[in-house]
């Protein structure tokens, strides 16, 4: 009897050690597989040359009052608008309660440079390029930008006022490197 219990205990012990090594080997394979998947996924992120293009310098000296230009940053359109006094006054007169995404013009421009409105030209609805940057284009019911795809109207501060777009046109990160040069990104 005694020897029988001994041997069965021995087997049990052996089974456990065997299981441990097998489990360890399989877990290592799993860890290795995950470690290999990481670079295979990461390769789809923007590559170094794409990231290097993430800042763009724009010369704004040629943009007269009331004019706008369309330029590009990270392969996306950017609107740079030199607002007129009337447009600034109109933007400032809108009550916050009328806005879908309440923001003042001052919050969307740099201090002392309130006439320079710089936004991405990407409608926040589904990504079309709104009209209004070029001379003679439809600027919508509120005198800013108008997206022809699904009829979103933006006001003179490029805030959404009417139509399906959920938020204002995005203001990208930028700085005035001098009075006439803006660095976006």
């Amino acid at each position: 009897m005694a020897s029988e219990t001994e041997s069965s205990a021995g087997i049990e012990d052996g089974v456990r050690r065997r299981d441990f090594i097998n489990i360890a080997a399989v877990s290592f394979a799993g860890v290795g597989a995950v470690a290999v998947v990481l670079p295979l996924v990461n390769q789809m992120n923007p590559s170094a040359d794409v990231l290097a293009l993430s800042s763009t310098e724009i010369d704004i000296s040629a943009i007269g009052e009331g004019q706008a230009i369309k330029t590009s940053w990270r392969k996306q359109p950017v609107f740079v608008r030199n607002l007129t006094a009337a447009e600034i006054a109109e933007a400032n007169s809108v009550p916050m309660s009328d806005l879908r995404e309440p923001q003042t013009l001052a919050e969307r421009t740099k201090p002392g440079k309130e006439n320079w409105l710089i936004t991405l030209g990407v409608c926040t609805h589904l990504g079309c390029v709104p009209l209004g940057a070029a001379e003679g284009e439809n600027r919508g019911d509120f005198g800013g930008y108008f997206c022809p795809c699904h009829g979103s109207h933006y006001d003179t501060a490029a805030r959404i006022r009417k139509g399906p777009a959920p938020t204002n046109l995005v203001v990208p990160p930028y700085e005035f490197t001098s009075d006439t040069v803006v660095t976006i990104g």
Partner: peptide, 19 residues
């Protein structure tokens, strides 16, 4: 380094299963 440990483990596992 990782593969060395992995290979030793798979070898032990192989010896165990064939014991």
């Amino acid at each position: 380094g990782f593969l060395l440990i992995f290979t030793v483990l798979t070898y032990l596992s192989y010896r165990n299963i064939w014991a």
